[in-house]
């Protein structure tokens, strides 16, 4: 058992460090996932773009995928994790812009490729960073528009898990 002064010291340290040392439990969700059972409804060589749009709604990305093909991608994410964060704020800067580039690295989803007649050719499921290379190679429309939240020296250690 800790003595009374030791307890007081522990509480004082906790209070003093609370602004720069944190044990964090985070969860970040982006959009709602698609049930993999629904994917079986669409068939390569039969289904059309209309079927896809009616079933899953609007895709996240659309891009040219070869001479006579284009692809659409649906993506979602749920990151859960804990960690220890030590930070020393230097300045504060915040941009409300939405950073698709950062999101691309962790999104899970579906890519469907259609031919010039809007017929489904094939579909793939996985991390968009691996299956949507065509989109990720596409140059950004707005260079330099990403988040600039920096200005904080920090280290983050912990465990993360993803569920999809």
């Amino acid at each position: 058992m800790l003595s009374q002064p030791a307890k007081g010291l522990a509480v004082a340290i906790c209070l003093a460090c609370s602004s720069c040392v944190r044990v964090q439990w985070n969860r970040a969700m982006f959009c709602r996932g698609i049930d993999s059972n629904e994917l079986t409804v669409l068939r390569a060589g039969e289904s059309q773009l209309n079927d896809c749009l009616e079933l899953f709604g609007s895709p996240l990305y659309v891009w040219q995928a070869g001479a006579d093909q284009y692809a659409v991608a649906y993506g979602w994410d749920m990151d859960k994790g804990w960690g220890i964060n030590v930070s020393i704020p230097v300045t504060q800067e915040f941009s409300a812009s939405f950073d698709y580039d950062d999101l691309d690295r962790r999104l899970y989803g579906i890519v469907m490729t259609f031919d010039a007649n809007d017929q489904l050719q094939y579909q793939r499921q996985g991390f968009l960073s691996e299956i949507a290379e065509g989109y990720l190679r596409r140059p950004s429309s707005f260079p330099g528009s990403g988040d600039e939240v920096g200005s904080e020296e920090s280290s983050n250690q912990g465990a993360e898990e993803q569920s999809h």
């Binding site: 964090q24 009616e54 809007d118």
Partner: peptide, 28 residues
């Protein structure tokens, strides 16, 4: 020293597809 954080992000999205004449062919 414990922080609990939850960020929920969702979107409204529309994709409109046009033919070479600029006519709407698909929309989701």
């Amino acid at each position: 020293v414990l922080a609990l954080q939850n960020v929920d992000t969702v979107q409204d999205r529309v994709w409109a597809f046009f033919d070479e004449e600029g006519l709407l062919t698909h929309i989701g």
